[in-house]
């Protein structure tokens, strides 16, 4: 790759949304994925979760009584992060996530993540936050809900990742 092309690519990759793109009720572009046994096992190993219900069909069905192995919670967190930063771009910085588990996600399920911006706020340090509701459905049933608080650049010169110490308040929401 030439340096010019690399530079163009680099600029494109670093671009994302800013506060000007946010409004309450904004729908985040959905993410669809067909879950396989590999999805579940790879997710468990990527999160160093060695528990058998995430890789051993017989254990999951005969001991746990579930219909199959199922996606573990830490890997679902990875899915939620990907869903949010696919939308924000790389400057989007996660502040807080709250999960509520409703049902498991199994191989063969069609997983769909959808989300909405519920609130946009400016905190006391000048950081712009998008408060989002995200829903993960499996074959149309709600599997997990996730409330996400993500910092968004105020403009193209701003970078939430530059915040530290007293200037990074990820849990200020009431």
């Amino acid at each position: 790759m030439t340096s010019a092309r690399r530079s163009d690519e680099h600029s494109r990759q670093a671009v994302g949304i800013t506060a000007a793109d946010l409004y309450e009720g904004l729908a985040i572009p959905p993410l669809d994925y067909d879950v396989t046994a590999t999805t579940v096992v790879l997710g468990a190993l990527a999160t160093r979760d060695w528990r058998p219900m995430h890789h051993d069909y017989k254990f999951a069905t005969e001991r746990n009584g579930t219909q199959d192995i199922f996606l573990n919670t830490p890997n679902q967190a990875h899915w939620f992060e990907r869903f949010i930063t696919d939308w924000t771009g790389p400057k989007g910085r996660l502040g807080q996530m709250t999960f509520r588990m409703k049902r498991s996600v199994f191989p063969g399920d069609h997983m769909r993540l959808t989300g909405t911006v519920d609130r946009v706020e400016l905190d006391d340090t000048g950081c712009v936050w998008a408060e989002c509701s995200v829903i993960l459905t499996a074959n149309g049933e709600v599997a997990t809900t996730c409330a996400v608080r993500v910092a968004i650049p105020a403009d193209h010169d701003d970078n939430p990742w530059s915040r530290s110490g007293d200037r990074w308040v990820p849990n200020q929401a009431a």
């Binding site: 999805t39 997710g43 190993l45 990527a46 990875h78 899915w79 992060e81 990907r82 696919d86 790389p90």
Partner: peptide, 16 residues
């Protein structure tokens, strides 16, 4: 290595 494995597990292409 683990970062890339985790990203690969959810096909996260965030250039960061």
């Amino acid at each position: 290595g683990y970062v890339w494995t985790a990203c690969a597990s959810v096909e996260n292409g965030n250039p960061l």
